[in-house]
């Protein structure tokens, strides 16, 4: 194959990341870190879950990558994939909301700003929701509200821990008060999940602000955050205008929230999966630990017997 063909094929097979524009990739082979400017071989960066090996900067990733990183291969079962947005207010700012939805769907291949499903995390079944910042800034409208509510309800029904990876600018203005009410709706589902003594952990990634912060992002039994994410209720510019002075560096970051007691632990992306699995195991009642161990042992024995009979 000539070098030219190789380049042409590479584009077709989708080796080039779909979000390369956001990440300012020179030619796809190498990626420049947006913080330390060091060039990293794109494949290596992907293998390192889009965390710069040099400075540890967490590049923005999207829902598909995140699911791939957290869920065991071939165990992901997406749910409610057909739930799609409408335009109940017939909203129009500089662009009609209906057009905005259509264009964003075409660009992202997503129906709306969250993917939900059931999968295994190092063998532990869990309900997972992942918000996608590409979809109108991860804003929360009726679809995000409905899909997360159903996910939590399913978690309650199936007695599963629920994890939500947050990335959102807040409520989606184009759906008006319907968006605001999703905050209450999701919180209601979380209340029932909590009553059932089940574990809920939000993972706050860059950025988590507005209505998401004022609802499910802050309602975790345990709250995790990625390093250096922006997390806050009011936007930084709004706060600056309110207090009429410049805010300290590091205001509204993960580290800031940790030191103020609103986040339990900052977890680098590369350690997130094992941390979640560990937390699931630490919350399993002792009796169930024994049962699970016994089941694994039985399964192993059955397998050995089957192998022998081959």
């Amino acid at each position: 194959m000539s070098l030219f063909d190789w380049f042409a094929n590479r584009k077709k097979t989708g080796l080039v990341s779909e979000n390369r524009h956001e990440r300012e990739i020179a030619d796809g082979l190498w990626t420049k870190c947006e913080r330390c400017d060091v060039l990293t071989y794109t494949k290596d960066l992907k293998a390192n879950q889009q965390v710069c090996p040099d400075c540890g900067h967490h590049h923005r990733i999207f829902s598909g990558d995140r699911i791939e990183q957290l869920i065991d291969t071939d165990t992901w079962k997406p749910i409610n994939t057909q739930v799609a947005p409408e335009d109940p207010l017939r909203f129009r700012d500089r662009k009609a909301y209906a057009d905005r939805i259509r264009d964003t769907q075409a660009k992202t291949k997503l129906t709306d700003g969250v993917q939900t499903g059931i999968g295994h995390i190092h063998g532990e079944p869990a309900a997972l929701g992942v918000m996608d910042f590409r979809f109108m800034g991860g804003s929360m409208g009726s679809v995000v509200g409905e899909k997360l509510t159903r996910l939590i309800e399913l978690g309650t029904h199936e007695r599963l821990p629920v994890f939500i990876v947050c990335a959102s600018g807040g409520a989606r203005m184009q759906e008006g008060m319907l968006s605001l009410m999703q905050m209450a709706k999701i919180s209601a589902a979380l209340e029932r999940h909590r009553e059932a003594h089940l574990l809920y952990i939000p993972i706050l990634t860059h950025p988590t602000t507005g209505g998401v912060t004022a609802s499910f992002a802050m309602l975790g039994d345990i709250i995790l955050a990625e390093p250096e994410a922006t997390i806050g209720f009011a936007g930084r510019r709004v706060v600056e205008q309110t207090v009429r002075e410049k805010l300290p560096d590091g205001f509204q970051t993960s580290e800031y929230l940790l030191s103020h007691g609103f986040v339990d632990k900052i977890v680098p992306r590369t350690e997130l999966k094992q941390t979640l699995a560990q937390l699931i195991r630490l919350h399993r009642p002792m009796g169930q630990v024994a049962i699970a161990a016994k089941q694994t042992e039985t399964a192993r024995q059955v397998e050995t017997v089957l192998k022998r009979s081959d």
Binding site: M183, A188, T213, F233, A234, G235, V238, V239, T242, H260
Partner: peptide
């Protein structure tokens, strides 16, 4: 939307009530 309000967890306070 003030500095101290953010520092004291405006988001958490509202979320908890919800």
């Amino acid at each position: 939307p003030g500095f101290e309000a953010e520092e004291m967890g405006q988001g958490e306070a509202i979320a908890y009530n919800l």
